[in-house]
Nucleic acid binder design. Structure first.
Lengths: 292, 292
DNA sequence: GTTGGTCATAGACGTGGTCTATAGCTCCTG
DNA sequence: CAGGAGCTATAGACCACGTCTATGACCAAC
């Protein structure tokens, strides 16, 4: 036996208000419709659910048992509907972004602040990882959006351009004599170089660039975070290859300066990835609108 | 926002099976109907609930949240439907009967045994009280059936005849000389009489009977239970007025004998009361069928 | 390429849920 | 006690909407 669940909604209101007429008003129906609906339920069970009297209805023994279950069920549905409304209007929900810590900190942070201020109910999850990890997370559905360096070639993914960044070599006061000097690659390679760890997108890009000119760039020091790249360069341990926009503060205050090279460093593009042909959550849609 | 609850049933099965086609089968619908239903839900919330792919569907973040509520809700409804079926087929439920202990013990007991054997899932509640108390309980909905002595005149009640009982005077061996003697009322009153307490239906009947012949019956001893009436008579404390059917064992074994009177004692009728125009529970309906 | 499985879409159909109108009932009130 | 104001039940008409069939688009596996 499997009833039309709509009947339970009618039953719930009839039980709750103790009146078919009141239930009809609550449901924007007419009283005969409600009366008919209750009769249908009763017939389907072969049980009488209500006592009818001149001032309304009251639950029978059996009706009361049914009501105890249906009430809980209906309340759950009401909560679910409220929850859905909250998700829709972004007063609730979560936004899961994957990418590198440096992009979070130096590029995404203002957007995240803005977003959080506008939608304080949305929980933010920042999932840091390498580009391939981020892509995996995206495909596994563990994040909604991935933020990485372009180019990304994966036809399961839809990639949108973000800001354009410029990588460059920087040094601290220990190498002050290089300030203002336009260096060749060959010359640069005579200094100790500090690079990001091997599996990063930036590292691959710079390695390829040098290779295309016939050089091999071998770092003296390899580090795992942008902060360390900056810190080591400031302390004079070598010349770091960093994203210029991420060291704007240090360049401005003079604790670091940019090394001029005689070749153009290609810009690098930040990209947002989402799954192609997969619907985005409201929270994620809104965030992407914000960034664009 | 208040959806057609039928949509949630479809959503539940789609989420549960991970396939619109499977959901359609479970609900005896076609796949396009299910597809349409899900679309309606999604439109009503303004949210996407499922990812569609070539091997079925899977819940989105938001769909999963909805599912967590709807699942509980639907399970409650299933339980409720099972419960209703159990109440209908009498494998569950309760039967509440009001009346006097003596009627329960001496008249209803075999029926109760039979009923309980046939429907062990039905809980029996025997609510003992006087006739007016029993009527009150019935009107308050605290019992389903009342079993009392007729006549009952109350147009809110529907009364059905039960067994006919015969009250009589009995004595024990102490008054052996009266065995076989046809006594007059006048003579009887010279012996110590034991009667049931004042507010009982039987007591009122016997008092009225004696009055109609111009006598006043005043008991030596008043007791509150039929068992005591019997016990006191056996011990020779006096002559008890009891229901003959309730002392059949004692009459047979000879520990009590019936006093012959020169007037006919009117029979007394047992009646079953239920509320007029009020639906009976399945359990109560079945019990009444059994007795008839 | 073909087959077999998804889900989506379009449009037709017909049932069932809703309506209006009215009756029957009980309780209350003048 | 008649009349009114509640309530629910019943009858019958109607039309929206839920369901169907048919088809398309897509994907994965063989």
């Amino acid at each position: 036996m499997t009833n039309n669940f709509e009947l339970y909604k009618v039953f719930y209101w009839a039980g709750k208000t103790g009146s078919l007429t009141q239930a009809a008003k609550a449901l924007y129906l007419t009283q005969p419709s409600v009366s008919h609906a209750i009769k249908q339920l009763e017939d389907s069970f072969g049980l009488t659910l209500f006592y009818r009297n001149s001032k309304g209805v009251s639950l029978t023994q059996e009706g009361a048992i049914l009501y105890s279950y249906i009430e809980k069920s209906q309340i759950l549905i009401s909560i679910a509907e409220e929850k859905m409304a909250a998700l829709k209007n972004l007063s609730s929900g979560e936004l899961r972004i994957g990418g590198s810590d440096s992009l979070f900190k130096h590029y995404l942070l203002p957007f995240l602040e803005d977003y959080h201020a506008k939608h304080p109910g949305i929980k933010l999850h920042l999932n840091h990882g390498t580009t391939p990890e981020t892509i995996s997370f995206l495909k596994e559905g563990r994040i909604d959006i991935g933020v990485v360096r372009m180019p990304i070639v994966d036809d399961q993914l839809e990639v949108m351009k973000g800001i354009q960044l410029q990588d460059c070599f920087v040094a601290g006061s220990r190498y002050a004599e290089l300030k203002g000097v336009v260096m060749s690659m060959e010359l640069l390679l005579e200094y100790p170089i500090i690079l990001f760890s091997r599996n990063s997108r930036v590292r691959m890009a710079i390695t390829e660039l040098f290779q295309s000119y016939g050089y091999e760039i071998k770092p003296e020091i390899e580090v795992g975070s942008v902060d360390l790249l900056i810190e080591f360069a400031r302390k004079g341990l070598g010349i770091s290859y960093v994203t210029r926009e991420f060291v704007s503060k240090e360049l401005e205050e003079g604790s670091l300066f940019e090394i001029q090279l005689d070749v153009n460093m290609p810009p690098s593009q930040v990209g947002f990835m989402i799954m192609r042909n997969m619907p985005l959550s409201s929270a994620a849609t809104k965030f992407i609108e914000l960034i664009k």
